[in-house]
Design a protein around this nucleic acid. Structure first.
Lengths: 242, 242
DNA sequence: CTCACTTTGTGCTCACGTTCACAAGCGCAT
DNA sequence: ATGCGCTTGTGAACGTGAGCACAAAGTGAG
């Protein structure tokens, strides 16, 4: 699911933050935000780890990649850590975002509050349907698809969300990239091909359900198991979970 | 290396499909579906890998966990592979699903076609808002939150989707689990605590955007190439203390 | 039948990620 | 100021995943 990353392949010292860690930082940030709202000023790795649903050693190692921001014997200062994590994630600035495709999902995304609160500003909405163009969604006027490039350039947009049907996603993607977008969040159920310098992350709800179905099926399996060859001994070792 | 996880248990290969592989099977399935629609009857690992956006060796290894379904010198039979992958994922049966929470997102999910086409049948919708209860969404009547347990039991539902506000997600989750649900797809931006036998997968759009922002920020950094990028931010990034 | 060619299946190696376990460091009580 | 208890930061071991490269196994031509 990771798009190819040019950074690591260049042979030079990659002393950055591991991808797995980056993926967890937003979770820590959310937990810290809740603690902060509750007026908590200091938190131990154990407490924060529990709140974030991870193991405390992992949390400490993750935070250690950002620097030594804890105090031994005490814990971490919540406010300070919020700032440090935000800075590392690049959330101290605002990121203008465009959403392409305003079906049910695009509509839901445009109305989602979780974006603005994290420094993402939805600046434009684009759709191909003439009936939708010109209407107002979440306080923004929907622009026509042919205005895509203009919209991207005029708002200096680097991050785009694709919520179109799969059939047109690649085309939209190509145009976004050509217009200067370099990060794409793809909700269309299709694999997007992009140049190396563009980062794509995908969210596919159908895939998530299928993964759940796989594990669900395993649970139901009465040891007898799957056709064909083999009669494995222990039908259910239940290796699932994390 | 993986081979011995299965081999260790008995003479036969089964039981241990790596999580990373399971997560890719739905992608292969989608690609195979497209090929099938186009009337393609046979496909090589190279072609399928390209369509799925992965490396061909990885694809072959993934498929080898299911069994030896290819023919050397020829490739894989598309129809047969569709069947085998579907069977492995548990998609040869229908999975009844309930969606809890019918805000913009729940609404979008209820109307999403990608579910039904993969063997998931949305059987019930539940919401706490009295104004929504009783209305019809995507052809289903919205049931009240207090009917949650009844709904789960009467439809024999094992897989649930949570699309509620974060504040009530854990409570809904607990009730779902108590009612017998054992797989949960969570869209609420919160960490859910569940018993070991319950599988949770989460989809958090805000987190995905934050991950993109991280990489986007890195790109913008001054052009000192790949070298000491992080060094200028905090001198302690290396593993050694000064 | 034999040879040349194609494509699968997999052994091997390296890289990444997780977890344990403990020394180092900090604050507080005495 | 000294020692005690607590929590961080991290070395090291282990587990998982990716990808190369090649032997094995099939096809088809001569």
């Amino acid at each position: 699911m990771r798009a190819d990353r040019g950074a690591r392949r260049s042979g030079s010292v990659r002393q950055g933050i591991p991808d797995a860690t980056v993926a967890r930082l937003p979770v820590y940030l959310r937990a810290l935000g809740l603690l902060s709202e509750d007026g908590v000023s200091t938190v131990s790795s154990e407490e924060l780890a529990t709140a974030a649903g991870v193991n405390s050693a992992k949390l400490r190692k993750d935070l250690s990649y950002l620097g030594s921001y804890g105090t031994r014997g005490v814990g971490y200062d919540v406010q300070y850590l919020v700032y440090q994590v935000s800075r590392e994630l690049g959330l101290t600035q605002d990121w203008p975002v465009v959403i392409v495709g305003l079906g049910h999902l695009g509509h839901a995304l445009a109305n989602y509050n979780g974006f603005a609160s994290r420094g993402f500003a939805i600046r434009a909405l684009v759709d191909a349907d003439p009936d939708k163009v010109g209407t107002t969604v979440a306080g923004l006027e929907v622009a026509p698809l042919q205005a895509l490039e203009d919209v991207v350039r005029s708002h200096d947009i680097a991050i785009a969300v694709i919520a179109t049907p799969a059939a047109v996603a690649q085309d939209v993607c190509d145009r976004l990239v050509a217009a200067g977008v370099s990060s794409i969040l793809n909700f269309a159920p299709t694999v997007l091909a992009v140049p190396d310098h563009v980062e794509v992350r995908k969210v596919d709800m159908s895939i998530e359900l299928q993964i759940l179905a796989f594990h669900e099926q395993r649970k139901v399996l009465p040891g007898a198991a799957t056709a064909e060859v083999n009669g494995s001994l222990n039908g259910l070792a239940t290796v699932v979970s994390p």
